[in-house]
Design a protein around this nucleic acid. Structure first.
Lengths: 225, 225
DNA sequence: ATCGTGGCTATTGTATACAACTTAGACAAT
DNA sequence: ATTGTCTAAGTTGTATACAATAGCCACGAT
């Protein structure tokens, strides 16, 4: 039997639904998200929709203008620089802490993730499907490191910052050499963790993110490769 | 004519009122903040109160437990370590960026703030009143640096992290030597900015925060000096 | 005596009704 | 032609009514 009702979950549902549509880029930048409209399309009232929009505003995905509405937030080059600077700072710090705090089991799982990702790359499938197979493993890899930092606030803040560039990931194309480099970074990071070397771990994390940023910037410049 | 009504400001009012009471430590840790109660005491309905509580939960001052309520969040030693680690990371980064980006006018204002704070210290009034006179100037000093980083998200994140230790500031006693050291840090930071030296600026900011943390930890150990 | 069960109360979550503000457009005056 | 004002529609902000959940206490069964 399903629950007789959806009570208690409407706000959560609205949040995930709207966030999903934002991450899939379904609205152009600047679009006003009308509460009534969203409420009807989701089958709930305006109250939980407002709740969800406020949360998304905190995360920076939309901006709320008092008495006028909330609209989809777009990012220019400077925004991307800001976000990437913060992300590097936070994830670099997380890697530094994680090197001292990850359990052997967690390091083992990171190593397994490396192997799985390398297997996918070795299979050499079409670009789009490979990216879709890689994404959840890569996300798990980074999430494990955040957890390994044993700093809950750091993990939460990082998730906030990282959610924004996700919007752009769909458009990013990696060259074969760049994929290999990314895999190599993951490998080396695990080694740094195993060696319990915070500086090594942080450095390679910074290089890893910086390289990814470079790829994204190149793709922003030439949108349709 | 005053505005005929307070419409449009109830949520904002509720937010500031509740946050103020939280920062003044009016409720013990773990106290459940009942929406109806707060609404009546503020003369508004539950709707804007809920809004305010959600915002405060994002900032980490309270925690919301689904279907049970939101309660005042307390911090243990580990929480304080986490918060301070993050604050150092973020404000250090801000100082590094600000060294390259602050305008000459802003550096001038920082220098003026130093002089004003030193004047207050030289006056040598009673500890409590001195602290109250110093606090807004010190806050302005740090805020200027955050703005000078020209990274809005960094400034916003830092404000989030910094608001929490504010709760504890009331209990913190500085020894004369510590006050002098703090003033000296401010001075040196301005010099680092004037020299446009990011590493110097970041280093002295880290030392400044670390020293403040040490004072707070000492006071936590012996609560009533 | 203890454990399980059932209803009761208090509180949160959601829906709806209403008030006030913002904005756009038409019309008039200069 | 341009500017200002007024009106009206649409949207957000707030209040209130209602639904449903969670925790607690009393009560009964074993």
């Amino acid at each position: 039997m399903s629950k007789s009702n959806n009570h208690g979950h409407a706000a959560e549902h609205a949040y995930h639904a709207i966030k999903g549509r934002l991450l899939r880029n379904e609205w152009p930048d600047g679009t006003y998200l009308r509460e009534t409209e969203l409420a009807e399309s989701l089958g709930v009232s305006r109250t939980p929709v407002r709740d969800a929009l406020r949360r998304l505003a905190v995360e920076g995905l939309v901006e709320t203008i008092p008495n006028a509405g909330t609209r989809v937030r777009g990012w220019n080059a400077q925004d991307l620089d800001e976000i990437f600077g913060l992300r590097s700072l936070l994830e670099g710090y997380a890697a530094r802490l994680a090197a001292q705090r990850l359990s052997e089991e967690e390091i083992g799982e990171l190593r397994t993730l490396c192997e799985e990702m390398e297997a996918i790359v070795a299979r050499g499938s079409e670009d789009r499907s490979r990216r879709e197979a890689l994404a959840p493993l890569n996300e798990r890899f980074h999430t494990l490191i955040l957890q390994g930092s044993r700093n809950g606030r750091l993990a939460q803040m990082t998730r906030q910052v990282v959610s924004i560039p996700l919007v752009l990931r769909t458009f990013t194309r990696y060259e074969p050499e760049e994929i290999r480099r990314s895999m190599s970074h993951h490998r080396e990071m695990v080694e740094a963790f195993a060696a319990r070397d915070p500086i090594w771990a942080e450095s390679i994390m910074l290089a890893h993110l910086q390289a990814g940023f470079a790829v994204m910037k190149r793709n922003q410049a030439n949108p349709t490769g």
